[in-house]
């Protein structure tokens, strides 16, 4: 599938998608509510078949947060980047994709740990690197830690 066809497929599931081409991938930005439907469609549909989630990470922008999913199809060889936009920066929530790609279970725990994004329906959402009683989410831009971070 080339990029035009991919765009059409994505639009058929999530009409309010914005497209962008940077970093060598087709980037689609969708609202977080659409994420699970789109992911499931891209995974199951015969002509997309994105079965390999090779990178999952979060990002903190001043007004919103996004979760980035890098997908690749091992049969067709095409790639796509999904960016799910979460408007609520204070209490970010999004559906889990760990039921679609098993690797997401650990990656989502990492994003939860460092960004505080809650993944709904995640089987075991706990902090993965930091201790359970750690305050705050270190990779957020407004995180302040006067003890451990030395500002230059």
């Amino acid at each position: 599938m080339d990029q035009e066809q991919l765009k059409e497929t994505v639009l058929s599931v999530a009409p309010e998608t914005e497209f962008e081409e940077t970093g060598g991938f087709l980037n689609v930005t969708i609202p977080s509510a659409r994420l699970h439907d789109l992911a499931l469609h891209l995974r199951e549909s015969e002509d997309t078949l994105f079965d390999y989630l090779f990178c999952l990470t979060g990002m903190d922008w001043p007004e919103y947060m996004i979760v980035v999913y890098h997908l690749k199809s091992t049969t067709h060889g095409h790639s796509i980047v999904i960016k799910a936009k979460i408007e609520n920066r204070e209490k970010p929530e999004i559906d889990t994709v760990s039921d679609i790609w098993r690797t997401a279970e650990f990656h989502e725990r990492e994003v939860f740990d460092l960004f505080g994004i809650v993944f709904r329906n995640h089987p075991d959402l706990r902090r993965i690197f930091l201790e359970d009683d750690w305050m705050g989410y270190p990779l957020r831009k407004d995180y302040v830690d006067e003890v451990n971070i030395i500002e230059l």
Binding site: F54, T57, H70, R102, T103, F106, H107, E110, L139
Partner: peptide, 14 residues
């Protein structure tokens, strides 16, 4: 923002 996709992390999850 910089993210490292480390192979060990995914391998461990299995």
């Amino acid at each position: 923002r910089l993210k490292f996709r480390s192979p060990g992390f995914s391998n461990l999850s299995a």
